[in-house]
Design a protein around this nucleic acid. Structure first.
Lengths: 130, 130
DNA sequence: CTTGACCTTCCCAAAACAGGAAGCTTTATA
DNA sequence: TATAAAGCTTCCTGTTTTGGGAAGGTCAAG
């Protein structure tokens, strides 16, 4: 498979696939003309990476997860730990966004939104009078 | 005020303040020795920026908001529009994170987390069997 | 034989800073 | 007073995960 084909099958842009090779997540063969030649296993790995990234795992998390996936003897507890830590980070982000959302929604609701200049949003930003 | 003092008062790191000058958000004076000299107005602006950033506004949003703050004649509707668009972006991010959270939490709950190798989390990442 | 579609590598850009080096100024201390 | 320490300056690099694009080799079709 050339990069265009595996890009289509994996759903990842060719740029991304080259990058993943650069940082050592995959190591495709090369044809005689210098083109990358991808195996089914490469496709498998790229699909894995795509899914893990879609769940918000960082590249380094993905590296860890892939290594675990290839290590037949790792304990499921190890995997669970990585996932749980990621879950905590997600929860923290959600909480932070919701806090911002709350404050901002309040400000927006207080702003008349007409063509007069007085605006509670800017007043708050300037003075901190929430 | 030197940069250290205004950094303490505004709560922003000196690096950040220099960066904000670089990109034209503030334009502090210079003393004869080359040190930046900050006015009360600069402090005011930096506080404004800190609050807006804490609400998740991008630097470009901040630039817009600051310009609006300095423009006595702008309509509050203009400000509200920026804030509402930002609110929508926040909501989108929250929704996306919650969706990821849901999937991941399910996987984590299904994983025994013991010292056996079988792990639903990795199985899902590899095959997409959620 | 040429055109166009792929492929290659290499370099730059993004967002919003953080870290650190080299060097100047000011302040504090011995 | 001498020196050390703190604070300031600019400049360069690195972060994270790609995206865009240039210059150039290769392959398939008409």
């Amino acid at each position: 498979m050339n990069i265009g084909e595996i890009s289509g099958k994996s759903g990842l842009p060719a740029k991304t696939i080259r990058y993943y090779e650069d940082i050592g997540l995959i190591t495709p063969d090369r044809s005689e003309n210098g083109y990358r030649r991808f195996s089914q296993n490469d496709l498998h790995k790229l699909t894995f990476l795509g899914r893990a990234r879609a769940l918000g795992f960082s590249i380094e998390d993905c590296r860890t997860l892939m290594a675990m996936y290839e290590d037949e003897s790792r304990a499921s507890a190890d995997v669970k730990k990585v996932a749980q830590e990621h879950l905590i980070r997600i929860d923290e982000k959600i909480a932070q966004l919701q806090s911002m959302r709350e404050t901002l929604a309040l400000l927006v609701s207080e702003c008349a939104g007409d063509n007069r200049p007085d605006c509670p949003i800017l007043n708050d930003l300037a003075c901190g009078k929430t």
